[in-house]
Amino acid sequence: MVGSKLNAADHFGTFKARWGINRMNYTVDPGLYALGSPTSESDVYVTANYKLSFDKLKSALPGINAWILVLNTNGINVWCAAGKRTFGTAELVRKIIKSRLAQVVSHRKLIIPQLGAPGIAAHEVKKQTGFRVIYGPIRATDLPAFIESDYHSTPPMRKKDFPLTERLVLIPMELIPALKHMAMILPVIFVLSGFFGPGSFLENAVANSFFAIIMLIGGMAAGTIITPAALPWLPGKAFSFKAMAAGLITSVVIFALFLMFSANTLQTGSVLSMFLLASGLSSFLGMNFTGASTYTSLSGVRKEMKLAVPLQISAVFCGIVLWIGSLYMINT
């Protein structure tokens, strides 16, 4: 038996999962749960065994007595698991049989989140188990309104949008892997810079790499933070293009700040190379946000990649050549 109220540990667990800490082990055991004290007349809600999904469902049903049937999706949320069909007809039928649901409840209906539909064939479930699938609203928070309107979703309840808050919570998922890569690349740039110039190794390294490092961090931030946050306002439709634009804007801002506040003179080659690298990097990182977004199609992603990936590779290649070239120029 479970209650609908979330405690501090649940909220802390959510926070950790968003930052990628132990995300893949954030699960609940599959099977049938009693929310409150349900009877044989009570509704049956189906969800995935990702604890975030389970928590959202039960906290959306305060004071309601119901059954919750948790499918084994290996700790993946409903929508992603439905795409893989682990949240699917076969698993649902298995769990209905295993939990003896037909004996537990007297009615024959299941409420399944609409985003589970890519994995579930409602007519197949009916044929195999006798249970009728009712697709509930996309957001668990709409469940009380859904119940009130006699188990019907209004069109807004059926539409998946991608609001700012939702985009923001997805940022760490893109940012953390990118930071790990940066932690490897930036020291290389620093050390390489030390070999060129009139001063000591350390003086050279600082003087030559400072602009480059700031520009690359800017490019990374543009692709992983600015692109998700400013998605609707960036130009274009392709994520690689939106992110390239974010990278260019960031580069211009950083360059302008350097012109205003830095005593060091910047070489044209170095500036150009960093514009190429930062916007290429941003474009690539932002393109990967398609996987987290809620409206990109596979055909569309393939189409944008056909053009974007060769351009990204060229930009990065030219950027590296130009930057190393500009280092050599210092010595001559």
């Binding site: 992603c80 994520f239 398609t290 996987g291 977004s293 990109t296 596979l298 055909s299 992603v301």
Partner: peptide, 8 residues
């Protein structure tokens, strides 16, 4: 042709 629109 169902799939997930994910560049990675």
């Amino acid at each position: 042709d169902a799939g997930v629109g994910c560049a990675a």
